[in-house]
Design a protein around this nucleic acid. Structure first.
Length: 295
DNA sequence: TACCAGGAGAGCG
DNA sequence: CGCTCTCATGGT
């Protein structure tokens, strides 16, 4: 183990940090000049993309950086994942357009709570709600001088002790009772998030869907972004649009047919494929509505 | 202003 | 199963 230090470097290629942190899987990263600032667990972190990898900086000395490598998934064999995608034209276009887009490995509770709040919200708004929730209910974490105060994501226990109307003041609207009930269930020890990853995908999904405010889409987000199920395939409005437009033009597939299609077409890393299609669609939408974003 | 947002859940035929 | 409606709030 190296001497404790305030910074380190992860050597990794084909890693588009900005796209990854901005692709609607995590909601706590803000741009800071040419870097990104966020909180991972109980630590303030600043990340910067460099030529051959990612430079990381913390507020307190770190001896073992595995927690951050695990979060960033810097060690995954990216090429072998891409190689499992079907070589159809839409998939090739999405991979070409979003090369370097990765999946993070997030904390299950933070991921679950965040996506309960995501229902029919734009990514920008989810960020705002989560930021407000952390500021009001999260433990302060040390940040370097000159940086704005940083907060950890609130624990289930902390949220469980809040009231619905208090949570509604974080602008989460009708999602408040769902977040509160789920926080209380987890805080009471009646739902073991750590145990999920030992189940089969189908069973883990149906366990998650017992929680209020968690349907198939949000369950798949938690399984894909936090629990290590690369085959989970969150079906949101953008993916539905992408599948219909790219794979079923001028047809009218039922949701059942679409579900059957994704289960057989995208392979063992369907979740990665999903993230590419999602970001591909969203990118084109943003460029159309706000052309100034184009570089 | 009108429409929509990384949905879920209930009611209905 | 498949459709429709509501829920709260704010961005574009």
């Amino acid at each position: 183990m190296a001497n404790p230090a305030l910074s380190t470097f992860f050597a990794v290629r084909d890693y588009d940090l900005a796209t990854t942190l901005n692709s609607g899987q995590a909601f706590r990263w803000l741009p800071d000049g040419d870097a990104w600032v966020g909180v991972v667990g109980k630590r303030w972190v600043r990340l910067r993309a460099e030529r051959n990898g990612i430079a990381a900086e913390t507020a307190e000395p770190i001896g073992d950086w595995r927690w951050l490598a695990d979060y960033l998934q810097t060690y995954v064999d990216f090429d072998s994942i891409l190689a499992t995608f079907s070589g159809d034209a839409p998939m090739r276009a999405a991979v070409t357009a979003c090369r370097g887009l990765r999946l993070l490995r997030q904390d299950p509770w933070e991921c679950l709570a965040s996506f309960i709040l995501s229902a029919t919200k734009q990514v920008v708004q989810i960020r705002q709600i989560v930021a407000l929730l952390c500021k009001r209910y999260g433990e302060p974490v040390p940040a370097p001088r000159g940086q704005p105060p940083a907060f950890a994501f609130p624990t289930p226990e902390k949220l469980a002790s809040a009231t619905e109307s208090q949570l509604r003041r974080c602008k989460m609207g009708f999602r408040a009772p769902n977040l509160l009930a789920t926080a209380r269930t987890v805080a009471r020890g009646e739902f073991d998030l750590e145990r999920l990853r030992h189940l089969r995908l189908r069973q883990a999904r149906s366990e998650l869907m017992k929680l209020p405010g968690v349907g198939p889409k949000i369950a798949d987000c938690v399984l894909l972004f936090a629990c290590g199920y690369p085959r989970a395939f969150p079906m949101d409005v953008w993916i539905l649009k992408a599948l219909r437009q790219l794979y079923f033009p001028r047809r009218r597939p039922t949701s059942g047919q679409l579900r059957q299609f994704v289960e057989t077409h995208f392979g063992p890393y369907a979740g990665y494929a999903q993230q590419y299609l999602f970001h591909y669609m969203r990118m084109h939408h943003l460029l159309r509505s706000r052309p100034a974003l184009r570089e």
